[in-house]
C-alpha cells in the first residue's frame, strides 16, 4: 500500500512539474493544483506510517483500526487554503487575459522593460479608462 502511494505521488509530481514548465499561466496553475494534491497525499501517507499516539482519546476507548485524525485535519486545512490561493491566482490570470489579451508568461514579461516610465503612464491611462 505504501509503495502504491509512493508511486502515485511520484506520478502526480511528474505531471505537475511538466505543467510548471509550460509558458502558459493557466497550465502552470494547473500544475500547482496537482502539486498540492501530491503533497496532501504525502501528508496522508506520513501520518499513517509514523509512530502515532491517538491524540486526546485513549487508545483503549477507540479500539483497533482507528485512524489518526490529525493528518486529515491538516489536509483539510491545506485544501481550503490551497483553494483560496488558486482562486486568487485564477482571478489574476483572468485579469491578465481580459486586459492584455494574453496568458503567456513571455508576452506579459514584455512589460518588464517599459519604454516610458511605466508607473506614471500606465497608471494614468488606466485612470482615464476607468
Amino acid at each position: 500500500m505504501e509503495i502504491l502511494f509512493a508511486i502515485a505521488i511520484g506520478t502526480v509530481v511528474t505531471a505537475s512539474v511538466y505543467l510548471f514548465l509550460s509558458r502558459d499561466l493557466l497550465r502552470g496553475l494547473l500544475g500547482f493544483i496537482l502539486f498540492g494534491t501530491a503533497v496532501n497525499l504525502a501528508i496522508l501517507l506520513a501520518g499513517r506510517v509514523g509512530p502515532m499516539r491517538p491524540p486526546l482519546v485513549d487508545a483503549a476507548v477507540l479500539g483497533a483500526g482507528a485512524a489518526n485524525p490529525l493528518p486529515q485535519a491538516l489536509i483539510l486545512t491545506a485544501i481550503v487554503i490551497g483553494f483560496g490561493l488558486t482562486a486568487f491566482a485564477l482571478i489574476l490570470t483572468l485579469t491578465a487575459h481580459r486586459e492584455f489579451g494574453t496568458t503567456s508568461v513571455e508576452e506579459l514579461a514584455e512589460a518588464e522593460t517599459p519604454k516610458v516610465p511605466a508607473n506614471t503612464a500606465a497608471a494614468a491611462t488606466r485612470r482615464e479608462a476607468a
Partner: peptide
C-alpha cells in the same frame, strides 16, 4: 497595471510552490 499583474503572477506562483514545500516538510516531520 500590466507590470503589477506580471510581477504579481511571478510572486504568486513562486510563493505557492514555496509554501507547498513547507507543507511537505510539515507532513514529513509529522
Amino acid at each position: 497595471t500590466r507590470e503589477q499583474i506580471d510581477g504579481g503572477l511571478r510572486y504568486v506562483l513562486l510563493n505557492l510552490v514555496g509554501t507547498t514545500f513547507f507543507l511537505l516538510a510539515v507532513g514529513l516531520l509529522l
